[in-house]
Amino acid sequence: MLFQRHSAPNFRFIILFALSLCIMFYDQKKQQSERLHIALSAAVAPLQFAISAPFDVLGWAKDSFTTHQKLLTENADLNAELLLQQAQIQKILELERENAQLRALLKSASYLTSNVKMAQILAVDVDPYLSQAILDKGSQNGVFVGQPVIDATGVMGQVIQVGFLTSRVMLITDSRSAVPVQDVRTGVRAIAAGTGPQRPLSLTNVPDTADIKVGDKLLTSGLDLLYPVGYPLGVVKTVDFQSGEPFATITVEPAANLNESRQVLLMWLPAQAVYEEAKQDLVQISKERQVPTTSFVAPTN
């Protein structure tokens, strides 16, 4: 009896240790364990919905018990805002028409229009060292891996895992995330890489001579064929040019409300149009620079 009690855990631990290592190595090759993750996320989804539900009810209760007066003032404010934005949209519609015309002249497909669907971030915390969020839309809503996610003010991230009912979003602050961006003021292109949750992004490999200043707005350039073109990513927070260093140290404050947004938009971009557009751009660039066109692989999606 005594022997059994003390030898069983040893043996069991060695087996489980080996099993953990095997699963971790297997999981590193994401493509293979995709199905496993779908199954697992389906298993834990009820738990996540269960935790999130009371917070949704709280929000609903708060809405239902606001006073008449408050609703009236809020309504007036919203009407005023709507008027302002409609005025701005008139200008945008005109610009869009003009843009489409110009693109037609250049014989290139316009991909500024795209389908969007509203999704909600579940009120569920993940480990604080991960920059992730969980959405209440999954494969049954047509969500796919690599899908861009934005909120009202900017780009939030991309979908990295899709379950049946839920999906997992990697935020732009994740250290594995990198978004190609363009400076609105000067057109300088760069890549904004995440450095960890609650931290500013950093622009990587920007030469000391690049014209980027504090306060510059950065938009997505769409060169990754993943994020839509021209959505705000952030504002340059600090710029540090150090003599002797080949690259400048530039930090960027994300435009999206990464910690507070609950309502987000999932985007469906016409992938083929994006691909054609990018290919034409690249051909143009390579012609200008007299560089032979490299083979370009179409996105499978």
């Binding site: 855990p9 069991r12 099993l19 290592l21 971790m24 993940v126 480990d127 991960l130």
Partner: peptide, 26 residues
């Protein structure tokens, strides 16, 4: 509640957190 139970709960934690599968389990 032995090591096996601990390991299984770790797998659930990994699924919830989206961490590498087997990490919390180990």
């Amino acid at each position: 509640v032995n090591i096996g139970v601990a390991w299984l709960m770790g797998i659930v934690l990994d699924a919830l957190n989206g961490t590498l599968l087997g990490e919390h389990a180990l």
